[in-house]
Computed example of a mutant assay.
Amino acid sequence: MNKKPPRQPLRRRYSVAAHIALLPMAFTVLFAYLGTMLWTARVSVSSSRTFPASDFVGLAQYTRLFNNDRWLLSLHNIVWYGALFIAACLLLGFLLAVFIDQKVAAEGVLRTVFLYPYAMSFVATGLIWQWLLNPELGIQEVLRQIGFPEARFDWIVDQDKVIFTVVIATVWQASGLVMALLLSGLRGIDDELWKATRIDGIPRWRVYVSIVLPMLGASISTAFVLLFVMVVKLFDAVVAMTQGGPGTASEVPAKFIMDYLFGRANLGLASAASVVLLSTVLAIVAPVLYARHRGNRRKDTA
């Protein structure tokens, strides 16, 4: 009697099936992402204008880029915006997470309320805050109608303060995400820690500063990476709120790239700006991800 060949182990079958299922995503990453990055880098060292060119001009586009006052202004704005946005989101998100972690009443409703703005698009957020900050229709007009005729809140039309209005709008939208990330970290802290600190008489604020925050390192680094990516991608909120104005006072790199790519048909300069932006992201995010990876490996080997 012929014996049937041994059946392939189920685990191996599942492994092969999983790898096959991942093939479309692998091709997408290789060709749509990495391929696009390499193509952009190639175009950035050419004299491309409306259409891609196959010549090579070295770093001429990068020289032109950093001699462009509008680009330098956009870098200045994004640095200020990024520092204020990330710091405010982390602080506000942490305070919201601590508040909800006290097991307050209607906790589920509050979590939804705080996280809901993040579900909105940046275009919707920008339009809402454009109306709120409009000197003739928004907060300023409301204050004057209720008895404060000298009240002024016209930052959105003030060249020196307009970038702060973008910070306010986007912090309102993104701080809920930070709250959710940090709340999950807080819920992972053992209750015995709180009991021990109460017995030792350690002030609660000191526990959060000296013990809890270091324990939330992974959650904070995740939040930082997500917020930093939002900073680099900032475009929709600026276009919806200010169109980069007044003048070019709220210009940001992503808007500069889109304007030169489509509005001015300067493919080479827009590609150079894109490469600079990508290099900045890699320079900031890669060390954070590497540090997290090393930390996880140390925990696994401990």
Rank of each mutant, 00 (worst) to 15 (best):
A254V: 02
S184H: 07
G176V: 00
T165F: 11
L261N: 07
T197P: 02
R206H: 08
L137M: 13
V167A: 10
Q145T: 08
R198V: 01
V157D: 14
R152Y: 04
R204C: 00
F153Q: 14
P214A: 07
A273V: 04
R204E: 00
W155F: 15
A265N: 11
I168E: 09
R206D: 03
A265T: 02
I202H: 04
G201T: 02
R264W: 08
P135R: 14
A272D: 03
K255T: 04
L261F: 12
R206K: 07
A270G: 06
K255P: 00
G188Y: 00
L234I: 13
I211E: 06
S271P: 08
A169F: 10
L127C: 11
F262H: 06
K255C: 01
M215W: 04
M179E: 07
R198E: 03
V178G: 01
I199S: 05
L267P: 02
T248N: 10
S221Y: 11
I156L: 15
L182K: 10
E192T: 15
D190I: 05
P149L: 12
L182T: 08
T222V: 04
G268T: 01
V209Q: 08
G217F: 03
S184E: 12
R187L: 10
N134T: 15
V207I: 07
G244E: 01
L183R: 08
I211K: 04
D160A: 10
F228C: 12
F224W: 13
E141T: 11
L182W: 04
A240R: 00
K233A: 12
V162E: 11
V238A: 07
L143F: 14
L127W: 09
G201Q: 02
Q159L: 13
G244T: 01
W205N: 00
S175N: 07
I139G: 09
L137N: 12
M230D: 15
G185A: 10
L181D: 05
A180T: 10
A249E: 08
T170Q: 08
Q243L: 10
L183M: 08
